[in-house]
């Protein structure tokens, strides 16, 4: 744990933060899941989009600068005095990848929420975490009235690595959302135990070590 200003007292006061990302398409229930396990109402933080950050050379930039924001919702679970888990909902749109990078940096892992009626909405999230080698689980949010599919069918449809857990959940239910997070953490534990690092089995050995 590094400290920009060294002060032993400060170190003991600030808990260790753990980031978990909640990803998935628009309206799939990310904020609902966060809210069901968070100890606080989900908070919202915003980032301003500038031309630089979206990588577009836009001559109208001055007018637009500071007018476009992208929101991220997040929740918090305090575990004793020393540990705080932050659940960050990723922005839905793919063009905000630069924000994903910041969110994914140092994250313990991710939950990709899927809706079987719009399964392809979660493709970009799955792709992103696979490419980045961020451990993730897929949680199928079982909306009322949506047809239930066995997890294996979802796995096949998403062409997932066999090791990636796929679970059914109800993001509105605290217990259910809790189980999703437990599934993610035990998956990461497995990866750490088997590989000595958190790289998924399929990712090879080329990542940072």
């Amino acid at each position: 744990m590094d400290s920009t200003h060294s002060d032993p007292g400060h170190r003991t006061l600030a808990p260790v933060p753990v980031k978990i990302l909640i990803a998935g398409g628009f309206g799939v229930g990310k904020t609902t899941l966060i809210g069901s396990v968070s100890e606080i109402q989900p908070l919202r933080t915003e980032e301003i989009l500038t031309n630089e950050s979206v990588g577009v050379d836009d001559t109208d930039g001055v007018e637009h600068k500071g007018t476009t924001t992208v929101a991220m919702d997040f929740g918090r679970i305090t575990m004793g005095r020393e540990l705080v888990v932050y659940l960050f909902g990723t922005p839905g749109q793919e063009r905000f990848w630069f924000l994903w990078d910041e969110l994914a940096y140092g994250a313990l892992g991710a939950v990709v929420l899927a809706d079987t009626r719009r399964l392809k909405d979660c493709f970009p999230s799955v792709d992103y975490f696979e490419r980045r080698r961020t451990p993730f689980v897929v949680a199928v949010n079982c909306f009322d009235g949506a047809r239930r599919y066995p997890p294996d069918l979802v796995r096949k449809a998403l062409d997932l690595d066999p090791a990636v857990p796929v679970i059914l959940c109800d993001a509105r239910e605290r217990e259910s959302s809790k189980r999703v997070l437990i599934e993610l953490v035990s998956y990461v534990m497995q990866l750490v135990k088997t590989k000595g690092s958190r790289e998924p089995a399929s990712a090879g050995q080329t990542g940072p070590s």
Partner: peptide, 10 residues
């Protein structure tokens, strides 16, 4: 004072 999270990717 700022305490940045650990940046250890392992």
């Amino acid at each position: 004072m700022v305490r940045e999270p650990t940046k250890d990717l392992k």
